[in-house]
Design a protein around this nucleic acid. Sequence first.
DNA 1: GAGTGGTCTAGACCACTGT
DNA 2: CAGTGGTCTAGACCACTCC
Lengths: 271, 271
Amino acid sequence: MDPQPTTVPPPVHIQIADDLRLRIARGELAPGDELPTLRQLATTWGCSIGSARAAIALLKQQGLITGGRGRAPHVRAPMRRVVRDNSRHQQEKDLVLRPEEERRRTGTTEMDMGVPIDELHFRATYDRIEADADLADVFGIDPGSEVLRRIYETSDPATGHRHLWSVSYIPVALISSNATLLDETREPWPGGTQHQLYTVGIEIDRMVDEVTATMPTTADVQLWGLEQGVPLLRVRHLSIDIHDRVVEMSESIYPADRTTFRFTTPLTRWS
Amino acid sequence: MDPQPTTVPPPVHIQIADDLRLRIARGELAPGDELPTLRQLATTWGCSIGSARAAIALLKQQGLITGGRGRAPHVRAPMRRVVRDNSRHQQEKDLVLRPEEERRRTGTTEMDMGVPIDELHFRATYDRIEADADLADVFGIDPGSEVLRRIYETSDPATGHRHLWSVSYIPVALISSNATLLDETREPWPGGTQHQLYTVGIEIDRMVDEVTATMPTTADVQLWGLEQGVPLLRVRHLSIDIHDRVVEMSESIYPADRTTFRFTTPLTRWS
DNA sequence: GAGTGGTCTAGACCACTGT
DNA sequence: CAGTGGTCTAGACCACTCC
């Protein structure tokens, strides 16, 4: 038991990473600048290349640097984030009562993303599944009830990378009166999900969005063309109708380096 | 140019990680279960311990497993997430006009988090800074104008880990008529920021929350007591008054493994 | 004390990037 | 082609956990 418990120095690769992070934070290394090579780091720090590599890997994992594979890694420039605003919910509702021509022109299905939709592959897949415990709980229906599952996906034909992805669930009982709603070849539907529900007499009262984040798996990184150190924002969305029923639920994923959500909460006036 | 371009097999550590992930997804390995040791993985896959370690590191980075350091790593049980609901904005506003006794009792400063506040260290730090370009832009004031910066922090005295953190900015010009608002020893202020602003005649019209996520730095991991593979949710919050002025801006951070945000968007009725 | 993962090394081979 | 990072190995030493 030392009277002065000598603090152990942090591992070398942590020291190297911290030093580089500091130099980035101070602006000595600007976005786009190249970092020292592994060999350079190893000699200046008097450590092995393996330790230098660990430092670089750590910074990549934290989203601060990128590159490698044949050229020196460089400081990552923060990506321009597309804002997804909750006002689109009201806009989509307003559109429902407009004529089809206008709905089609304002080609905003529920899943637009500030990118010209013409340049993307769009794919919608429908199937019907039996509600598991989670879905049954969400909709307040019996487990085993039929639920329509719709998967929406857009991808960049040039790179093959996924651009947008969501699964949406609707109890079949709610929409069976309009058979065309079960037909995936009708997608993209002018006016989006709110108009689809409108055709069976459902009016939405409010939207609930629940947001959290997780790290992507190896497959996700491939699929989305992500860089290391980019979390995924996960959204579970509920559409609640004027009778307080959950009539639709969707789950979607957005890479955090290119997305921010903006939610405006109006407050009642004192007056 | 091969007629059949033989696809190169993925690196060993990726194969191992994918196999383990699959076994977790299928439920063969339940949350809390121990994974094979590095030595076991190395022998069953016929690779070195280093490669096995890389596989384990990858899964940790993805937030799927945890542990190590003297005992075998185990499958991570998903943490219970605390919901932060945007209805608290309205609740805080309603509280402003209530008597002080009630405001004090409903000890919800803007920064509560489903944890008994008595068991946490609370610290508020005030200082005044000159607006940089970003702050000047947010508030629509001249760069160099004085801005009050308040840092709120709670931490768990047992572990020393940070529990909650936010910085809040208010232009000094808006609140200089009430000198007590510049005094950090008055925190926690009953009724929170909205009541503070009320004392200088400001009524909030709406709240804007912008959410995204990033990966924590090494220091963040220490500070918050995070496990590997946990992103940070970052929120920029704007308070906008009834004259459409941004009167307060705050930035806060929440570990994603214990937080979900819930935003309810009311829609106008067709009637 | 036996077993675990974490750090670190030195060196080999590969795939990729520039010129 | 020379230089880069990525993969992989074999082995040493340490700190930690559990029995």
